[in-house]
Design a protein around this nucleic acid. Structure first.
Lengths: 239, 239, 239, 239
DNA sequence: AATGAATGAGTCTTCATTCAT
DNA sequence: TATGAATGAAGACTCATTCAT
């Protein structure tokens, strides 16, 4: 360590570029090591910056973590904003939410782990931007539920908070098995299973079609359509 | 190496008592500070023991944590073993499990936090005694579900794993609000809400037919729908 | 560690037997781990004794090491006492000493290492019994040399101390290669090589005189040579 | 982690200077206390540096020891490289090597002790830079021997390895008396004695003059010459 | 804007030795 | 005589953060 090469002349980069470099490096190191085991020194080194510089951009290691996670959340939300509006029907929308979340957990496992472990437990989480982002994120589900109720597809007394907890909590537990290495995560199947279970608890008792849009017959045909959809999806998975 | 005069005559306690003292102290300190911020020195001090003595009983700080948590799990399991058998009816049993878990989370919040944060993420969790205890714990729910199916109270195709994830995951998320300080935990209400939601997804749809007799066409469509469901399940299982 | 089996009733053994057990255990542990890394606890355990008991027999870990080494030295000396007297001729006796030492180093490598590393450097080595034993040990060589001189086999001016240093030092260096693992120790060959080298430096140049009686001139030159030697020695002593 | 106010403004030194300071301090402390009893804290304090800084320069206490010793070896080798080439004649060269080594042992006793005790016994010594340096060091003797053989001054069958062991081993033992405090080290006398002993074992048997070059008379004259050499050296040393 | 040397408190863990029972 | 619980001082190493240049 005492034999490291002497440094070269400092490289001046536009502020934004530097910031991005640091965030990228931080994300990588946090993912590989977890928050506690990540060293500021290593992050700085990977960003081709010395520690002092890093602290010019981010006031602390913790803030760095938060920024990383915020960026991740934001891109996630943007993705939902892009796709969700194009999906019709409460059931289909719910399935998308489940499925999309699972996909994220599967692909960005370590980031999800950071949220679960490092951030949520922190004292000032409830007042942090991350918490706000999380509210927006889970709020998507709340919105879909509310619309479902309004459209008469869901029971009027759906306990949104509990649903949200069971969905995101359930997804989290599901993914723990993935995080700890056992087993692949079959996101299509998990999404289907969870949806069916959930649907039974929140869908408007089908007998009620009377007050739903159109004739009962129409409602039932709609359900049939959806069943066909599922069938199709199932057979696709079987390939 | 200690050439200094002994300050006071050491207190000799039976091994078991000492062990218990240390565990008690450790539990308290871990709960107050979390694992990382807990100091072995403080634990020792509270147990009225010097650090060296502590290490005669537990080989490392980590092991100490594990023992604390194991003890907690075991008493929890013992409690279930005592009460669950006296409860009849799948719905009532499920409610008890939910309610009991919530009560624990409410009363032993910091311990639950330790399990969530410190233990589960560790590399060798899957092979640890704690994991085994956790399996036994969640297995209780699995048993109740299986009995419910056998008794004809639950649908035959209840996806036990998903239920387990949604229940314990949901309970965990629920309790996060509690852990992070916001709001009291109304365990009765939460248990009821969650149960209702869950029940709709797993109970045998006995109630439905009566009020949904409808027209022959509707009945036929309904049968068609159910057939599609079965088909989907079948094709999935075939994979 | 906290789950160790409870102890049985104390076993009362004759003092001598206990002492031997402890020494045996200590020897084994010291050999396996070296002095610093050997734990009193482990020694006690192997001797089937608790630490307190061990301290009833030996006042400290250091003393224990010394006793172990003393025992070893004594058996070594006894062995010499048994065999050396039966060997005739200075050259043969020297070879035996070399060879026997090498054999010990080869067979009791770790003990030799302990002497080299742990004991000799200690502050009070010069006043310790071990040092006395070592003097007796190296004194054997001194005796052989003196007898050789007396018998006219060796030069009168053999510098015994230097011989001793070169012999035992040389043997030690030789054995370091063995201790550090590289190469086998071919004790016969090494003994022969070293002896030949040594012999050239100490043996009375017997061959020369007979056939070198020579002319008066030669005799005179020889006397001159010897005078020079004496002069040299004298001037040195004068410093 | 250091939330306390900085006591005084840190002193900024060029990296090389700091490194040298630390090495100097380490050398002193290691010499005074030996490796095991030397505290990193004390080394740091003497170098006017906090422990953390020390670890920025050297990754461990062990590495620090190695660097200290390497520096010492290197300066030693440099010294040989400077003087040895100017000395002619195998006997004179051998004497220089002996004498120079003894001078080092006498003057840098504790460093020599460190090499003997701490380094050589270590598991990875055979692969360490120190071992390589040691090979170069003892290789000097090997070179002189080889040249002596080539020049016809030494017997063709000189067992270089054994000579090396006896020389350096003998010197080491010699110096142990010095290390352990008894007696001054008369390096001239020791060098002479050892050389004479050694010479008898390795020099081309001049007594063989019959079959060697020239008449017996010539051989004796040659010896006389050598005696004169020694005399001269002795008188020089007396100044 | 960038550097990078310096900080320094804090942590877990080890182990020879003692002594009341 | 034997136990073994208790001691307690010591020690190497880490790392987020600062600030003079």
């Amino acid at each position: 360590m005492s034999r490291a090469a002497r440094a070269r002349a400092p490289v001046r980069l536009p502020r934004e570029r530097r910031e991005r470099d640091i965030l990228t490096a931080a994300r990588a190191v946090f993912c590989e090591r977890g928050y506690a085991d990540a060293g500021v020194a290593e992050i700085a080194a990977r960003a081709r910056v010395v520690e002092g510089t890093l602290y010019k951009y981010f006031e602390s290691k913790r803030v760095l973590l938060e920024r990383v996670l915020e960026g991740w959340y934001e891109s996630l939300l943007a993705d939902y904003a892009e796709h969700l509006p194009g999906i019709r029907g409460t059931r289909a929308r719910l399935r998308y939410i489940l499925w999309r979340h699972l996909r994220t957990v599967r692909d960005d496992t370590p980031l999800a782990r950071l949220v679960f472990l490092e951030v949520r437990a922190h004292d000032d989480y409830p007042t942090s931007p991350l918490h706000a982002l999380n509210r927006r994120y889970t709020g998507l589900l709340g919105g879909v539920l509310a619309e479902g109720v309004a459209a008469g597809e869901l029971r009027a007394d759906v306990p949104a908070r509990v649903v949200r907890d069971m969905v995101y909590g359930g997804l989290e537990h599901l993914s723990w098995r993935h995080l700890t290495g056992r087993g692949r995560l079959d996101i299509d199947r998990e999404a289907d299973d969870m949806l069916r279970l959930l649907w039974g608890g929140i869908a408007r008792p089908e007998a009620a079609p009377p007050q739903a849009a159109g004739t009962p017959l129409e409602a039932q045909l709609r359900r049939l359509e959806q069943a066909a959809d599922r069938l199709e999806a199932a057979s696709r998975d079987a390939r």
